[in-house]
Design a protein around this nucleic acid. Structure first.
Lengths: 211, 211
DNA sequence: TTTTATATGTGAATAATATCACATATATGA
DNA sequence: TCATATATGTGATATTATTCACATATAAAA
């Protein structure tokens, strides 16, 4: 299995996120135990799929007794190495960037946006809770907070430049909102989110179902 | 192939988006013809994959001559039925909602956010270009603009209620940013975007590569 | 015009993923 | 405590997705 730039989140990992979401829902409803059957139904997969996935990630339940929800959540957190906080920087303070720095949920999962960056001096204030800094300060911040992951929310025209620069400064993983295929060396992870594509595919399938 | 709620974008459709992105890039660089080999390299897949995908979507090239980029782009647009504008509503004017209504790129793909909605009366102004309306007006707008697709950007606690209400009003497809598994009847499409999951999976793979 | 080199398009082969089926362990109730 | 019903965990099987391999068409060159 080649670890490469051109890269999709493995579907079993994706399902693990879904399971977590479902488990949190079940917990909220007062359950503390769950069976693969219930979880599968909620997550939209078969019970066997759930068990196979758990098996893959070395998560084990009790024969006949199912799974303790708290155990499962802890085990899933374990997969994501939840012990320590993760520092993240974000480059580009446009619409998307501003939304993300204010997105509180990252904190609940111990992902901390330590600073944001923009070339536009007029944006360089503390208006949005965390500092908006000039790109010259990337090096300092990345070193100071041991940042390994960055969010790219710049216009597509400058995305490749920003990426190259961040890789030089030691960033290994990217969440990219710019609609371009970024070129990277081996062992650099880029997860692209293309909002247009996401909306468009909804429209595509909606029309497919309707007709 | 069961069309269901619990639902992932087919990977060949996803690749079609990637191809488009690459093609736009090639075009910008001055190319007007492309071979499956080039496109595959750029998109991070094999040339055979490119051809199989095109074949699946009934997109055909010229033996020996490759593909005209403009033809390809037109054919891809055809897959997405690009002739007419698509009206979309968005519910929830928090961080994410506000970013999306200002996101210009939707327009380039003829996806038009015709109105946004929020229960908070203090948000009900025209501050962000399009009107922010109370939810009571959903029915009017959906009828007036023949809306079939909605973006849900409300807190998770109210997402299911909003979804149910929108389904009642005839919405068939959803782009959902609330981190919950929404329950829907058959033939309703929900595409979930979970920003925490996306960032977290970058971190996951980044740590995997590093170690 | 004819030749030739080369890119497409697609069945066949392979690989990856998901489901089935059942042996095993154990929670539950008698 | 013991019997039993039932949920897990996982090899075997089926399905789906990708790659291989090559016949075919044709753009480009002679």
């Amino acid at each position: 299995m080649k670890q490469n730039t051109k890269y999709n989140i493995k579907s079993n990992l994706k399902r693990l996120f879904t399971y977590r979401l479902c488990l949190i829902g079940f917990k909220r409803k007062g359950f503390d135990r769950i069976f693969s059957h219930n979880l599968g139904e909620e997550a939209g997969v078969t019970a066997e799929q759930v068990r196979k996935d758990f098996s893959f990630f070395k998560i084990r339940g009790n024969k006949k007794g199912g799974y303790q929800i708290n155990d499962l959540l802890r085990a899933i957190d374990e997969v994501f190495k939840y012990q320590h906080n993760q520092h993240v920087v974000i480059v580009g303070m446009g619409n998307i960037g501003r939304a993300l720095v204010q997105y509180k949920r990252f904190l609940l999962r111990k992902m901390i946006i330590v600073a944001s960056f923009d070339i536009d001096p007029s944006k360089q204030s503390r208006r949005w809770g965390i500092p908006v800094l000039p790109l010259e300060m990337l090096d300092d911040i990345i070193k100071k907070f041991h940042v390994k992951v960055a969010i790219i929310a710049v216009p597509e025209i400058s995305a490749q430049d920003v990426l190259d620069r961040l890789i030089d400064l030691g960033i290994k993983g990217f969440l990219n909102f710019a609609p371009v295929m970024l070129k990277t060396p081996e062992n650099i992870i880029v997860n692209n989110i293309n909002l247009c594509d996401e909306l468009e595919s909804v429209i595509y399938y909606t029309e497919k179902v309707i007709e």
